[in-house]
Design a protein around this nucleic acid. Structure first.
Length: 173
DNA sequence: AGTTTGATCGTCT
DNA sequence: GACGATCAAACTC
């Protein structure tokens, strides 16, 4: 199947981005972030969701791009079979949804995206008019909400519209 | 239709 | 032991 990415978020490296998993340096989970560019970094969160990132800087730098949303342009049936009932628009609308639609999970963590040897392949699609690319604060991130490192294609229906970071709300005693 | 809350577990302190 | 780069379902208006 094929998905056209329409929304992403950038995450910096060690010490330069409090919101990044790599901020505190290498750990067991974020190891792939320190790998070569074009590496897939898939992490598990909230006890039930996978999110996919693409590393984009030389080894050791650990900056990456979170794939936040995409539009299923081919293989809708496959995506639907993985995601269950959902509108076409919602199949990959959101980080965890996108990962699920692509069938990415822990097994895909650390695999290459550019040489075709991994479960997924990243390739350049049709150019997008720069005027339609917008940027703003990242979603679901507690810190550094003033850094406009979220980018999306304006007007695209598959772009996720989500609330800001919600403080934890586990029923206190 | 809009808003709020519950689910669920790996990873880090 | 606590929290998290979220989603979906339930409830209220």
């Amino acid at each position: 199947m094929t998905v056209r990415i329409v929304e992403v978020e950038a995450y910096g490296g060690v010490g330069e981005d409090p919101a990044s998993h790599s901020h505190r340096g290498p750990t067991g989970r974020n190891t792939p972030m320190f790998g070569p560019p074009g590496t897939l970094y898939v992490y598990f969160t909230y006890g039930m969701h996978w999110c996919a990132n693409v590393t984009c800087s030389p080894p050791g730098t650990a900056s990456a791009v979170l794939l936040r949303a995409g539009q299923v342009v081919d293989g809708v049936e496959i995506a639907r079979s993985r995601r269950g009932r959902s509108t076409d628009r919602d199949l990959a609308r959101g980080p965890a949804r996108l990962a699920q639609a692509l069938g990415l999970d822990g097994a895909a963590d650390g695999t290459p995206l550019l040489d075709g040897r991994g479960p997924a392949v990243l390739s350049a699609g049709a150019p997008v008019d720069p005027a339609r690319v917008r940027s703003g604060p990242r979603v679901g991130v507690a810190s550094a909400s003033d850094v406009p490192w979220r980018f999306w294609i304006d007007g695209d229906p598959a772009v996720s519209i989500y609330r800001k970071h919600v403080p934890k709300r586990r029923t206190p005693a």
